[in-house]
Amino acid sequence: MIETLLSTTGGATNTGEPQVILAVALGLLFALGTFLILRRDLVRVVWGVSIISQAANVYLVTMGGLRGSVPIVSHGGGHGTPTDPLVQALVLTAIVIGFGTTAFALVLTLRVYEEHGTIDLSEVSE
């Protein structure tokens, strides 16, 4: 998909370009997550942790292989590099666990707000 986008926009379709684009996107996601974790607002901290966990999931899928196109069991004797389903299964599990953890953290944030009247971490710690 990225190579198709690059070829329609006039860019060169080297084999290294999708990896560079993904590396830059992952770097930006990790930077944004780190920036949000360092904020004083508790909701932004929760969003930062969520963004970092999703960036880690994208990283795992990227390292699992971008070139695989056929499933392990193919009905017509398809040729090509098979995609590793283990990485995708682990990332799917991580997404579900991350969603539950984020929901729990937001409920805890609501409880902190009800208890202290603020979600500013510097005021809560006093």
Rank of each mutant, 00 (worst) to 15 (best):
V20C: 08
S122E: 10
A89R: 05
L28G: 12
G16I: 10
V87Q: 01
A94F: 07
R111M: 04
G100C: 13
T13V: 15
A12G: 12
L86H: 07
L60M: 15
L36N: 03
A94K: 01
V20M: 15
E17I: 14
I37V: 11
T9D: 06
R44G: 06
G76W: 15
T13C: 11
R39N: 06
I21G: 11
L92P: 00
Q54K: 08
S74E: 15
G98L: 05
A23V: 04
T102N: 13
D41T: 02
F35P: 00
G27S: 14
G117Q: 03
N14L: 10
I95F: 12
L90E: 01
A23M: 09
L26R: 04
V43H: 03
G48M: 04
V91H: 02
V112H: 07
A25R: 04
L6R: 08
G76C: 09
L90F: 11
A12P: 07
G77T: 11
L32H: 02
V24M: 12
Y113M: 04
A23Y: 05
A31V: 06
L90A: 10
A55T: 05
I2P: 04
L38P: 00
P85R: 06
L29Y: 05
V70D: 05
L90N: 03
F104C: 12
G80K: 11
G98R: 01
E17G: 02
V46D: 01
S53N: 10
A12N: 11
A94I: 06
G11H: 15
A105P: 05
S7Q: 14
L42A: 09
F104W: 15
H116N: 03
G77W: 09
A25H: 04
F30S: 02
T83E: 10
V24S: 09
H79W: 11
T83K: 10
N57G: 14
Q88G: 07
G68W: 06
I21S: 09
T101R: 07
T62G: 10
D41C: 02
G64L: 04
V61W: 04
V87E: 00
H75K: 10
G78C: 05
L26P: 02
A31W: 06
S50H: 10
A89S: 11
T93Y: 09
I95P: 00
I52D: 03
T34N: 12
A56V: 11
W47F: 13
G64D: 04
E115S: 08
D120R: 08
G10V: 11
V70H: 03
V73T: 13
A31M: 08
L42H: 01
V124R: 00
R39F: 03
A103M: 13
A12I: 11
N57R: 01
R40T: 09
L32P: 00
R44A: 05
S74C: 13
I97M: 13
